[in-house]
């Protein structure tokens, strides 16, 4: 039972990371109308920037975190014109073209991380960020929960709640949803399409940056290949939940985190990816349009 509880909490922490990544991916899909397959790779890039700044500033957590978040926003907005060039020309979602751009961005970033940082070796985040030197924060019987897990879970929940509040209760969120549902109709009621598109890049940048910081705390390390691994999972989660389905992504993202944690708790940890994908394979065979249905106009 103790293992179960510990791994459940662990799974929710990991799951909230997936939820953040899937929500960012879905927002770009719905509002900016691109398939940004490599969005998680840009998040790992921000982890590296954050790590580099931590190194230079003598592990200044505030500067390190800010650098991670800022770099994600800048990277997202900087890549926007490329995507929007295609959007303007085609006038509708061209999945093939935007996916190629996204993959290209992902490959370049992965190469830069392999060659430009730490000679391509995995990077480790300092203890004052991950909290591992102080050991577990909570110890109840066999259950030990690290500070990193608690922070990830709490911040993850707050960020996801804040994001859903923004989407469903604010003027900007309403515009996001309207464009997601019917871009042409949104233009006819006078919503600024390009401006709102840029806002969605900025918002996913903020989201990506915060995810980068949380991932650094939770994992304590990163490698150039981490982004691709995450990208595959995020794409799988969003398709299984139903492409563009924000609430579905929330549920499936958390479930995947818990599933992986349970496999790690009861079986060998190295099998968690394979088992997660077997389960997802079965789900997608049963529900080809996603468990909660696609929400693409």
């Amino acid at each position: 039972m103790e293992v179960f509880i510990a791994q459940f909490i662990n799974g929710l922490s990991l799951g909230s990371i997936y939820v953040l990544l899937v929500t960012g991916f879905n927002l770009l899909l719905l509002v900016a109308m691109i398939i940004h397959f490599s969005f998680p790779v840009t998040v790992v890039f921000s982890m590296y920037i954050s790590w580099a700044v931590l190194n230079v500033t003598g592990n200044n957590l505030i500067l390190g975190s800010l650098a991670g978040i800022l770099s994600a926003i800048i990277l997202n907005i900087a890549t926007a014109p490329m995507f929007q060039h295609i959007m303007k020309k085609r006038g509708h979602v061209d999945i093939n073209a935007t996916m190629v751009i996204s993959m290209g961005i992902g490959m370049i970033i992965t190469d830069v991380l392999s060659h430009g940082f730490n000679h391509g070796f995995p990077i480790a985040f300092p203890d004052n960020l991950t909290g591992s030197s102080k050991g577990a924060m909570l110890n109840v019987g066999l259950i030990s929960i690290s500070r990193g897990q608690v922070i990830t879970l709490v911040v993850g929940v707050v960020v996801v709640a804040g994001l859903f509040y923004l989407l469903y209760r604010t003027r900007a969120g309403r515009a996001f949803r309207a464009i997601a549902e019917d871009p042409n109709g949104a233009r006819l009621v006078g919503l600024p399409i390009l401006k709102t598109g840029i806002q969605s890049y900025a918002l996913t940048g903020i989201l990506g940056g915060m995810t980068a910081v949380l991932l650094s705390i939770l994992l304590g390390s990163a490698s150039p290949g981490l982004g691709d691994q995450m990208a595959h999972k995020v794409l799988a989660v969003s398709i299984i939940a139903g492409l563009g389905n924000l609430q579905g992504g929330l549920v499936i993202g958390l479930l995947l985190g818990v599933l992986e944690a349970m496999v790690q708790g009861y079986l060998s940890g190295s099998w968690s990816n394979a088992i997660a994908f077997v389960v997802m394979l079965i789900v997608i065979l049963v529900k080809p349009k996603g468990v909660f249905g696609m929400k693409l106009g």
Binding site: R174, R177, E181, G185
Partner: peptide
Amino acid sequence: FLVPEGRGVFAWMTVKDNLLLGAHH
């Protein structure tokens, strides 16, 4: 303001949200 052919209301949004979209500016 244009009331488009086929109404152009956002089917998956509430009546209230649809109205508020009109008041975006």
